[in-house]
Simulated scan of single mutants.
Amino acid sequence: MLTIAVLLPELLDTNGDASNARVLARRAEWAGHDARVVAVNSVIELPEQTDAVVIGSGSDADLETARDVLLTLQSRLRELVTSGVPVLAIGTGWELLSWGIEHGDGSVLEGLGIVAGRAIPRGERAIDDLVISSKYGRLVGFENHARAYTGAEGSPLGRVLSGSGNGSGTEGVVMGEVFCTHLHGPVLARNPVLADHLLTIILARHGAAYAAGERATQVDQIAQAARNQVAVRLGLAPEGDSAGNS
């Protein structure tokens, strides 16, 4: 039984990002592996055997509350990260794992320091489709954030093709098996190639190989069509064209 922990789903699910955990569980089941999603709101609720961690995005009004709860999980999260358990963090969930969040008034909310970099104020809020080119293929989603991100230039998730991302031409950060991004959607539903990469890591830790099930193949065609609609609207080549991952 694979166990996927989703942290603080009541506070960190503004854009439906907690559903990324359900995407992982469902695709694992389609591939013939039992899986469950466990909501974690305190350290005592974090399962001893945790195969993946999902952290969604939340509102700025809940940042300090969410950070304080996550601090109680900090040591356990570091253990999981060190042991190679994949972590997917979205938006403010990612920012809370960073060195800290700088606000426009000059104050700073210290983060957990698990991933390099910090969130810094943007001149204008980024609200648009976000498309990036990554080693996993083209990734598409929606961004909605008031902060840029610095310190991740050496290890981004990908290069921005359209949108703002980190604000430096790159998007997200990858450190070991920790994957952080501004992409909403939820990102794994819209980009199953990334979900399958995480599942490959998860199952490899159990000495098993991952192969997408037949149902996943059908669903992936729908996701690809949706990504291509976004690409065409933004003037990018659809996937399957020679420039599809440029």
Rank of each mutant, 00 (worst) to 15 (best):
N20H: 05
V43S: 14
V81P: 01
P238G: 02
D17M: 02
E48A: 14
A119H: 03
L24M: 12
V219Q: 15
H33G: 00
E110Q: 06
V187P: 14
S162E: 15
G32W: 10
S107T: 04
G163F: 05
L157T: 07
V174N: 08
N166L: 03
L88T: 08
R125A: 11
V193I: 15
L236G: 01
L139R: 08
A216V: 04
V173Y: 14
A39Q: 14
S75A: 10
V193F: 02
I201H: 07
N245E: 15
H184E: 02
Q218D: 11
V108N: 14
G158F: 02
A225H: 10
A225M: 07
I132T: 09
A204E: 15
R190N: 12
G111A: 04
G104H: 15
I127E: 13
E95K: 08
E153I: 05
S134W: 06
R122A: 07
L24R: 12
L198K: 01
G93H: 00
D68A: 07
G117N: 12
W30I: 08
R122H: 09
L11G: 09
L8H: 05
A116S: 11
A18V: 08
G213E: 06
G56A: 06
P9S: 00
A189E: 13
L71Q: 11
E102L: 14
V37A: 01
L97C: 06
V23R: 12
V69Q: 09
H184I: 06
S19P: 08
T50A: 03
L199Q: 08
L77G: 06
V85G: 04
E177N: 12
L63R: 15
N191R: 05
A216Q: 10
D241R: 09
L97R: 02
N15T: 10
D51Y: 12
R215S: 12
G93S: 00
G123K: 15
L8W: 02
D128G: 11
I132Q: 13
A39S: 15
A89Q: 03
A209D: 11
E171F: 05
A89P: 02
N144H: 00
A225Y: 01
S42W: 06
E214A: 15
A237M: 10
E124V: 06
V230E: 10
D60V: 09
Q218R: 10
V219C: 06
Q49P: 03
Y210C: 00
S242I: 15
V6C: 02
T82C: 01
P86F: 00
A66E: 12
H197I: 09
Q49C: 12
G113V: 03
G185W: 01
R22S: 08
A126K: 08
I55Y: 01
Q221D: 08
D220Y: 00
S242R: 14
G106N: 00
Q229R: 15
H33R: 13
T72M: 04
G113Y: 01
I132E: 12
A226Q: 10
P47N: 06
T50F: 02
